[in-house]
């Protein structure tokens, strides 16, 4: 029964929090937010073909914190490269083979890669088995591939178990 009413519990909680952030906390908005958190996932149910179950919430939190840290660190190094001579840059298109199969997890992975400055995900192959990444400066492609796979992909795999 509860499962039917709330097909995506995490999404519902997220929507409620969003609503309270957007309109401020009050009893009325709490009720309205709860209505929205119930109605919106039900209404958009057909648009979500197969959503992976979130297995490890605390790992997701750790992942988000880690990505924020990486963004700050990478920002500093990219800022140095932009201010330095462009001739010293060693740009590259790097292909990263993907182990995760789930669409949502792949979206999260590409977003993470693009958010951390210095790398931008440029394309995903049609069968979702490879990702094309453009890097601002890379000494060794293998190291970059390894970093993306070990640091981000492995953790996403643990979070969603896909």
């Amino acid at each position: 029964m509860i499962r039917k009413l709330y097909p995506f519990p995490t999404l519902s909680v997220f929507l409620l929090l969003m609503w309270l952030l957007l309109s401020g906390f009050s009893a009325g908005h709490l009720v309205l937010g709860m209505v929205l958190a119930t109605v919106l996932p039900l209404g958009t149910l057909p648009f979500w073909p197969n959503v992976p179950r979130l297995r490890n919430f605390h790992k997701l939190v750790l992942f988000v914190l880690m990505v924020h840290w990486d963004i700050i660190v990478a920002n500093l190094s990219v800022a140095r490269r932009i201010l330095g001579s462009p001739k010293k840059l060693r740009p590259a298109f790097v292909e990263v083979p993907l182990d995760i199969k789930d669409d949502f997890a792949i979206t999260l992975l590409t977003s993470t890669v693009s958010l951390t400055p210095g790398t931008v995900s440029a394309d995903i192959s049609a069968d979702a088995s490879r990702m094309l990444v453009h890097a601002l400066h890379v000494e060794d492609e293998a190291v970059l591939v390894d970093q993306i796979k070990q640091r981000y992909e492995r953790r996403l795999k643990e979070i969603f178990e896909c």
């Binding site: 920002n75 990219v78 800022a79 932009i82 462009p86 840059l89 740009p91 298109f93 693009s114 958010l115 400055p117 210095g118 931008v120 440029a122 453009h134 601002l136």
Partner: peptide, 14 residues
């Protein structure tokens, strides 16, 4: 400053 489009793409992410 950066010389080609793909490199310039890295600026705005920051």
């Amino acid at each position: 400053r950066l010389p080609d489009f793909f490199l310039r793409l890295h600026g705005p992410t920051k």
